[in-house]
Design a binder for these strands. Structure first.
Lengths: 328, 328
DNA sequence: TATTTCTACTAAAACGTATTAGTAAAGATA
DNA sequence: TATCTTTACTAATACGTTTTAGTAGAAATA
């Protein structure tokens, strides 16, 4: 159906080389006459010829595709982040091949393998746990890599992130400032470094002010069913609890659903979220939060990756984006 | 860096063909001896050889990639939808190349062109307006196409959607049942068929019950700034307004922000959304809505597309997924 | 006029795979 | 022993591009 460069050449009675050179704006350099150049151009336009990108990539070694690996494209952090990334790359004529790991390392490994096989020119990755080996693999393949949101401390990569520890401290200080004296932490049962950092901040706060730590770790798998029950039971047992710090927005949402919609509505204390959400400012009461600025985050990832692609792989660096505490 | 089949062959002192046949499980058919087969397999495993997917696709004509074109991957309808799609295709060993049109036909056309150039094996598309020609182009290239959410009536494609007119009628009936006698419609100023159908349902309802139609159309571009102002001004002018029917969830959210957070809080009537949102059930008052079942929607799209890919392009059909009215 | 330089192209090789037709050697048949 | 089959492979071609080295003819130089 789609014509090849060979057919175009035959129909014009010229060589494939000529057509290829003209199409790629190398006519001048190759001393193709203006006359022939415009004849080729006109014909190509007329029949709507488009080169086969696979063949082109194979020949040039450039796929014009980058891989974006997130935890869950459907969630309110990674989804909008992905949109920014896509838009930024579109401007540079790159396409984005995305995939969600859902937190499963095996998914992540499969995704990475097939992205490497498809010869992506770079990868932006929010790693799962146990992914050190595969991050090294990416680097061994000389594919530029930028890691964001969380990293794996034992492998050196460019790393774009927020300062979780400082942000977590700010969150605790804020809760204290509005009167909470016995607030707990609800987090996820994984060893993702950013979650650990948020927990560390909370523990440090407890230590400083002599507050008794109350921590609940919920399972990422089947969070909705299992997590709801666990949270309900846990909360019922806490005496004197006067606030909750959730380490992600989806945990906070779960908390709101489980605790606020309880008929007695007995949990009338402040709930604070790490990560904003588009409806947090119209809930009653409104939800204060740590806001990760998505656009700067995305911009930095893209900028760093493009630089690696254009100028070759460089020594890994860290890029820290500062967060905002939104008081509501 | 990455080894090619040629190098593998040389190192094993066999031909490229042998290696290729073994790798693709055609050893038996090609009468390669068991002994040699396992020797090749072992070596391939040992050096971690992975075929170059671009070359493979070029040779076979199969890219194992499908294109997903949505309006906005960051929003709460398309994001989770995309996750389902991705998961379903992953199981069948396909990868998803996604892109957001942001409602701009020129974006959509560029995206379609480059997906065709990359030889995707099928496309799932939520079309923008003015995209008829390009949908025909996809079909002319013999690439299977499934359109969802909205379609372009003048081009025949497989079309997966909900019944917007019936759903719209149900929404109006519901508002009537809870006592609204003068509710308005807030929609978007585009000619997307699904939006028009929702509006038609509202107008028909007005006609049936002699209710005076009050319709506000907001611009998709710069919705947040412009739309907020327009909505505020419009609402202020409506006397006796006792309810609002928003034709999308992001419009409803805008409505909630603009009207509910008004200090006077003078707009204390029911607001109804077309499309659910994860926080609608913890707002006070809760938001009732028409719920589009994402998973069946995604499953149907994927199933239909896979069938087209496997069994060849067939006569276009419509697939109607029924909605649920969620009363809260 | 013999040599060099330009002009305007093209032939050929390469990218890494899949596939089909072919082939040499061994075994079976008559 | 001459022919046919079977076994176990391989050579060659194709997929659709890019790119570099090459070339024939015209123009310029000496």
């Amino acid at each position: 159906m789609a014509k090849s460069i060979k057919e175009i050449a035959q129909e014009l009675n010229v060589s494939k080389s000529t057509v290829s050179l003209v199409i790629n704006h190398k006519a001048e350099r190759a001393r193709i006459s203006k006359e022939l150049e415009s004849r080729v151009l006109a014909y190509v336009e007329k029949v709507g010829y488009k080169p086969n990108a696979l063949a082109k990539s194979l020949a040039t070694g450039r796929s014009n595709t980058i891989g974006l690996i997130v935890e869950n494209i459907g969630d309110s952090f990674f989804g909008p982040f992905a949109l920014y990334v896509e838009e930024l790359f579109r401007k540079k004529n790159y396409h984005v091949l995305y995939s969600s790991t859902l937190g499963d390392p095996q998914n992540a490994r499969d995704i990475i393998d097939s992205m490497l096989e498809k010869k992506v020119e770079g990868i932006i990755l929010a790693p799962t746990v146990d992914l050190e080996e595969y991050q090294r693999k990416i680097l061994e393949h000389k594919v530029p890599l930028v890691v964001f949101d969380r990293n794996s401390p034992t492998v050196e990569t460019h790393y774009v992130h927020i300062d979780n520890e400082v942000s977590g401290k700010n969150a605790c200080d804020y809760l204290k400032s509005i009167g909470c004296r016995n607030f707990g932490l609800v987090t996820i049962d994984s060893d993702q470094p950013q979650m650990l950092a948020r927990k560390r901040a909370y523990l440090a706060f407890c230590d400083t002010y002599g507050m008794e730590p109350r921590i609940l770790q919920l399972p990422y798998q089947h969070l909705k069913q299992k997590g709801s029950r666990m949270l309900k039971n846990w909360a019922a047992k806490q005496v004197g609890l006067d606030g909750l710090f959730f380490t992600t927005n989806y945990l906070c949402i779960l908390g709101l659903k489980v605790l606020r919609s309880a008929p007695e509505n007995s949990y009338n204390f402040p709930m604070f979220s790490f990560d904003d959400h588009e409806l947090f400012d119209i809930l009653i009461p409104k939800i204060s939060c740590i806001q990760q600025p998505l656009e700067p985050l995305a911009k930095t990832c893209v900028k760093v990756l493009l630089k690696e692609i254009d100028q070759g792989i460089s020594i890994p660096k860290e890029y820290v984006i500062s967060t905002k505490l939104i008081k509501r």
